[in-house]
Design a protein around this nucleic acid. Structure first.
Lengths: 200, 200
DNA sequence: CTTGTATTATGTCAGGCGTATGAAAACAGA
DNA sequence: TCTGTTTTCATACGCCTGACATAATACAAG
């Protein structure tokens, strides 16, 4: 009976506008009015698709996570089958760094969301679950490679997993021009190369 | 002629109140009124010491950096003289992690400030300079240890420096309960142990 | 004590915010 | 065409913000 508008598509359009704001002006500037202006819609229209600011932010964040996953999946398809775990880990790490414009936008969204989550138990639990899932995935990869002898047996899987996760710290360093993207990639490359069959 | 009040001391008192707010409620909640309430002073009084919100934030941030440096210096004094570069690096890294309440407060201040700096060229340059200084210090330690044969000669000093800086990424992981503080410490310990005379 | 300056207290202001309301417009079915 | 629902839009309310202005107070020097 009603007008036919793709709800989901509209929300994604708005979410992308939100990314642009967060990317260029920061999380706090992402107000309802500002997002509406950036998306080229009226405030009322935006309210029709997101009944509250919080709902909008949550959606934009989940959408950003989805996009990041999609980028990783796309990269995985381009790897050898089956891919070498070292290449998988390198892909995951590099796709989380703000190297290209779209990755930068989602990276900044993530940074802002994480900061927000520190003071909001609900968000903290949600973000924590997602990250722990990611950790579990990396951990599984490491353990499998350890079993397969691709990693020297004297390496502790838990510690190596945590070290790899910590390398996401490069994101901040790149954003602030403390290390060049190229240098971060080289360091990640080096770390993984040393982990996989370093001293064998 | 006037009343005798230690300006600096008063500003630090206010800065600590600001830390408490940022720690518990987040950067955006750190309004003039909220900080004044937390510090137990009137709004006008606060405005007397900080003519603008931005000035207050900058001061609180510089003060936080000072406090972190002081913690490191205090730890350095407790080390062997001259200290082993491995121990120095471990100290620097661990003091930047949110392990104790005061370290957590300054860590959260830093996280919020860095996020803000991403969208403000002035702040970005300022924060960038500080971080690059830190990078240079770590780099010098690495190169010296390399010369002294404490680090295997096949290690690249620039890459190793960046890898160590990236380990500050543990701060976020700890905040979100993705890795236990104990595990982060173990990982840092392991990484440094492997760097210093790993395969010799 | 008087004076002058540092400090404290209080009030006001315009502006931006999230949200709510209600009516107009668009449109698919009967 | 008529009907009912979705979508659009403008406006308004209440709240909070940073900032500014102004008045009251405290206190050291002369």
């Amino acid at each position: 009976m009603p007008k036919q508008v793709d709800h989901r598509e509209r929300r994604e359009l708005i979410a992308r506008a939100l990314w642009r704001i967060v990317d260029q002006q920061g999380w706090t500037r992402a107000t309802m009015r500002e997002v509406a202006r950036e998306a080229g819609v009226s405030l009322g229209q935006l309210q029709h698709y997101f009944s509250s600011r919080g709902e909008m932010l949550v959606f934009a964040m989940e959408f950003a996570s989805q996009q990041t996953s999609a980028r990783i999946d796309r990269g995985l398809a381009a790897l050898d089958q089956p891919p070498h775990p070292r290449d998988v880990l390198r892909l995951v790490l590099t796709e989380m760094l703000p190297l290209r414009p779209d990755a930068r936008a989602t990276s900044r969204m993530n940074a802002a969301y994480v900061l927000e989550a520190m003071h909001d138990p609900t968000l903290q639990r949600q973000v924590g679950i997602g990250l722990r899932d990611g950790r579990a995935m990396v951990g599984r990869l490491i353990r499998q490679a350890l079993e397969d002898g691709q990693i020297p047996p004297d390496r502790d899987p838990d510690i190596e997993t945590d070290l790899i996760l910590a390398l996401t710290g490069f994101a901040t360093l790149i954003e602030l021009d403390v290390v060049e993207p190229q240098a971060a990639l080289a360091a990640i490359h080096q770390h993984l190369d040393r982990l996989f069959r370093a001293d064998a």
